[in-house]
Design a protein around this nucleic acid. Sequence first.
DNA 1: CTTTAATTATACCGTTGAGTACATAAATGG
DNA 2: CCATTTATGTACTCAACGGTATAATTAAAG
Lengths: 205, 205
Amino acid sequence: MQNSTKKAANLGRPRAYDRDTVLDAAVQLFWKRGYDGTSIGDLADAMGLARPSLYGAFGSKEGLYLEALSHYAATTGSAAMRAFETEPDLRKAVEALLRVSLEGQACPDTDAAQGCLLGNCAPAALDAVPASAETLRNMLEATRSRIAERFDKEKANGSLPADFPSEDRADLLFDFIQAQAYRARIGDTAGITGAIPARAKMVLG
Amino acid sequence: MQNSTKKAANLGRPRAYDRDTVLDAAVQLFWKRGYDGTSIGDLADAMGLARPSLYGAFGSKEGLYLEALSHYAATTGSAAMRAFETEPDLRKAVEALLRVSLEGQACPDTDAAQGCLLGNCAPAALDAVPASAETLRNMLEATRSRIAERFDKEKANGSLPADFPSEDRADLLFDFIQAQAYRARIGDTAGITGAIPARAKMVLG
DNA sequence: CTTTAATTATACCGTTGAGTACATAAATGG
DNA sequence: CCATTTATGTACTCAACGGTATAATTAAAG
């Protein structure tokens, strides 16, 4: 054998599940109950896996958790950013970012997870999973720079004044999203939708 | 006996600890590791109590947790609100609210808890301790109305225009505090202090 | 058809979790 | 001094936890 650590490509029994599908189930549980509030047994049940399969695929509870964070960030957690980047009109884009965020956070289904996995659940588990701190900081930085990049493009367009403080306003917008997530998590969503246009105005001036 | 559930006033062996002191220790642990990440054994050690004493005083882990939330709200968690209500100048008061909040959230002591117990830790444990949802909503509502009350008073003074939207701006200010807590929790505090004057201006116009 | 690589299913391991029984200690009231 | 009441300290219960050993499957490769 040339490399004992590398896996053979298509050898062995194929796995009987779809990785993204079982990660969706793990995300739901971590999102509802947090890292420490979710047991491997609950996860294995919800994912439809026996425990050795789970460990074979993800290594440990921490490993599964970190992959669940990334999976969330790549799916539910970034839907709003995709809406923001798709919408051509800047003001509409900012409002869409806030609105689509809220839709992902305040789910009408009563027993679905509320709020944001990264915003409301992961921060409680930083001590249990130290590596997750890096993940959260990266997600924040990525969101901040994607927003600022759009602002810079609009400055080049002339849609925003040349002295528009892209970074500061990106931070402001991020903070609005984060604050929405908190309200959604604890069930205080009454005033949010109505406040969106005013908040978009604070961001764009 | 007239009432079998009521305790006699000063009877029996006196407790050997101060309730507020041991609650401080419990707050620190829940704040650092969250509800599910903190074990009764850890709590008893940190509080300096044997487990039966802990159960005698607080009934259950949930009971201790709920008392810890209230204790935090009455001490660390409301220091900023006290600063806000003490400062006579409105703009300085708003800036003090943001600044003192940050001081409580971003502790220079590296192994102290960061962020906010109510803002960053409790939201992950809503499923484990359903009663805590009510607590969090009450804290939000109390903060919101205390801020709005001050704004209303300043409108009566003439320090704010008569059409100043007190409730909306109270929500905005609350959201800024909540967003600061998130950044402090994950260790992204670089830009916060510098942004405080601009944010106070958004609140007051 | 055999070898090899990977996944699956059952059953288990040692540890830690929350909560408690019971005997002892320390105070008040009579 | 004694009864009553409440708190403390040791030791314990039992369920749930994260993780794994082992053997049976299932596919590709030679």
